[in-house]
Design a protein around this nucleic acid. Structure first.
Lengths: 206, 206
DNA sequence: GACCTTCTCACCTACGTGTTAAGC
DNA sequence: TCGCTTAACACGTAGGTGAGAAGG
């Protein structure tokens, strides 16, 4: 049902739920190049944005959709000779609360009607940032976003999925020129930087 | 409990619900001067914005908050000699769907935590406007916004309130200079027009 | 003509980008 | 020095204002 073999899914009971990554092509391209994700002190939006479609919910039941970020290892990664390499061990992962989609809680009917997008979530490296839309991550560490569905009445998590294409390394500044170019081409807010040599090169490559 | 004598309240059962108008002072000033509210073809935000505080909900129960607009009479109003006067009878009121607050549905706990604001609602005079944030009104007719609370499980309206200060006459262009001046002073998006004689006059009056 | 509505416009708010230089 | 982070900045997107002319 539109699931890729390498998607990691966990059903907590026998629901027939199905989540697909809506902008999979862009995430694939991101993953192929080098998956750097900017985090800043004041918080930065993700690029690409997490965008999903859900099927198989009960239209009349109430659900909350959450986004959280699993730290994949305890390495501090380094960009050496145009490649990301695992560095020395770091501290334990920072604990962060899941980010609830702002339409939560809502009916299965509502969640299934349109593509669900997370454009407002902000990634930050500042511990004391307490805004509800802020998620705290460790720079130079590897993360994998995870989508969870919570049954509001049962107060239980009933489904979880994560996609390999959405893995990323948090950085405070881009290391790889191609990732930067990808964003400049696809994010309207970066349109001011379209006319540089790097972008033109990247565009002819594709 | 913070209710004014002239607020019109309707309890559908014995709940201890209490809603107060958060920006009552601004609405009072609006009502004293002349209560014109702009409606346009593409939809205009309200000024002032409806802004309320709710108490007495069950923190764990789920509610939907709605805003609707009751047409107060069937007159077509006219601005003559610096005053609004009832004109001839018009057609029957336009039917419009209530506007649901975008955080709906949600827990009583969430609704009571902060002031609830309706900045996104748009007033339009175009029948065929179907955006969910659009509410269709008849220009030159008198309206009174009404806030309703719906119990999500019972699927029943359990409370209704409307405030006299929030009555308004829908117009496609301001007739009264003082209302225009009030908006220019209080709405940041109108800051471009702050330095005119009318505004200065109004400011010294207050 | 009188009254009301619509359209285009300049001018704001609000905020999302990478750049660059400075900081640590 | 080196590697990474921060802050100020110019330059975009996106959208909310009344003004004033044009339309009905």
């Amino acid at each position: 049902l539109g699931q890729y073999e390498h998607d990691q899914i966990h059903y907590y009971n026998q629901e027939n739920i199905n989540i697909t990554l809506h902008n999979r092509d862009l995430w694939n391209r991101f993953h192929e190049i080098t998956n750097e994700m900017i985090v800043t002190k004041i918080g930065r939006r993700m690029f690409p944005i997490i965008s999903i479609n859900i099927h198989g919910l009960d239209p009349d039941k109430m659900y909350t959709i959450e986004l959280s970020f699993d730290q994949l290892d305890t390495h501090r990664w380094r960009y050496v000779s145009s490649q990301w390499q695992p560095g020395m061990k770091s501290d334990q992962p920072i604990q962060h609360l899941p980010y609830q989609h702002p339409d939560s809680p809502n009916y299965g009917r509502t969640w299934m009607k349109d593509t669900i997008v997370f454009p407002k979530i902000k990634l930050t490296n500042k511990i004391d940032h307490t805004g509800t839309s802020q998620v705290i991550l460790n720079s130079l560490h590897k993360y994998k976003p995870k989508i969870s569905i919570i049954d509001v009445i049962l107060k239980k998590k009933i489904y979880e999925i994560s996609f390999n294409e959405t893995e990323f390394i948090a950085v405070t500044a881009y290391q790889n020129q191609e990732v930067k170019a990808l964003k400049i081409r696809h994010n309207p807010f970066a349109k001011a930087f379209l006319d540089t040599e790097n972008i033109k090169k990247e565009m002819t490559d594709e």
